[in-house]
């Protein structure tokens, strides 16, 4: 019986090995080879990355961007998840569908919609002009701001769902108990609801922040020349410049960032684990 169960895991092991672990190993090997043609193991890709201030600046910008996306998503998602879990009853499913729409929308469609919406002379621009809030052009497209807007739209549903699930598990009798013990609604929120929903918040942060580090579609389309981040650099290395070895090295730096942030976050998450 036990043997049979083990047998069932073979397909997934094979898939993982062929499509995830092997490519990673190949990439790792590439990252230690020189793009200039000389053979042998070299560290020049990594030293290049860490010694050139332009790449460090890009790394910094990538992290700041991802942080901005995470924080804005959190500000949008928490109240939404809270109202879905604790206040709306009948509306819950409709709101959930509305939130899930970006999930099911093709990435390019979503991003180009934002392009049309945000561009000078676009929908937002004409609207703001007609209400008299701005004169002339908006100038938001092809800035980091546009990138952040596009990424928030792409990622906040994940956060709504993780927080919603955590809040759903907070039993209403706990809120009543808190109230019967004399706590106001605000204190109940900060002393009971928020701490108990923290595992969902931490998972949400992880699920938004980590993939944000590696995005390149939104930065490229909505950020234009100002949108360059690590993700776009890696893409350029592979598809434009054919500097695969250097690209692989940057990818591994990104990979390290992902691992570090995931470890850190899951450590924080464990502190709130009550199971």
């Amino acid at each position: 019986m036990k043997k049979k169960k083990k047998l069932l895991t073979f397909p997934s092991i094979i898939v993982l090995t062929v499509f995830a672990i092997l490519p990673l190993i190949i990439m790792l090997v590439y990252s230690f080879q020189s793009d200039s043609g000389s053979s042998g193991v070299t560290l020049e890709n990594y030293t290049n990355f860490f010694l050139k201030s332009v790449y460090l600046k890009l790394t910094y910008r990538t992290i700041i961007n991802s942080l901005a996306v995470t924080i804005i998503s959190l500000i949008i998602s928490y109240p939404l998840a809270y109202f879905m879990a604790k206040k709306f009853k009948g509306l819950k499913n409709i709101v959930m569908i509305l939130i899930l729409i970006p999930f099911f929308t093709n990435q390019l469609v979503r991003v180009y919609s934002w392009l049309i919406f945000l561009q000078d002379g676009g929908v937002l621009n004409s609207f703001l002009q007609s209400v008299g809030l701005i004169e002339g052009s908006l100038g938001i497209l092809f800035t980091q701001g546009a990138v952040v807007i596009g990424l928030v739209h792409a990622f906040f549903p994940y956060m709504v769902i993780t927080i919603y699930l955590a809040l759903e598990r907070v039993d209403n009798s706990l809120l009543e108990a808190s109230s019967s013990l004399g706590a106001s609604k605000v204190r109940t929120f900060f002393q009971v609801v928020l701490p108990l929903s923290m595992p969902g918040v931490v998972t949400g942060i992880m699920i938004v922040f980590v993939p944000c580090l590696g995005t390149f579609v939104e930065p490229r389309i909505l950020g234009g020349v100002n949108g360059t981040v690590i993700g776009t650099v890696i893409e350029d290395q592979f598809f434009e410049i054919y500097g695969w070895n250097f690209g692989a090295a940057i990818a591994f730096v990104l990979f390290a960032m992902v691992i570090i942030s995931m470890t850190g976050l899951s450590r924080i998450g464990r502190r709130y684990d009550n199971e």
């Binding site: 019967s180 013990l181 701490p195």
Partner: peptide, 14 residues
């Protein structure tokens, strides 16, 4: 100022 003991106890798990 009412003390209540709930069916599920409703103790704060954290």
């Amino acid at each position: 100022n009412i003390g209540m003991v709930f069916q599920s106890y409703a103790l704060f798990p954290h």
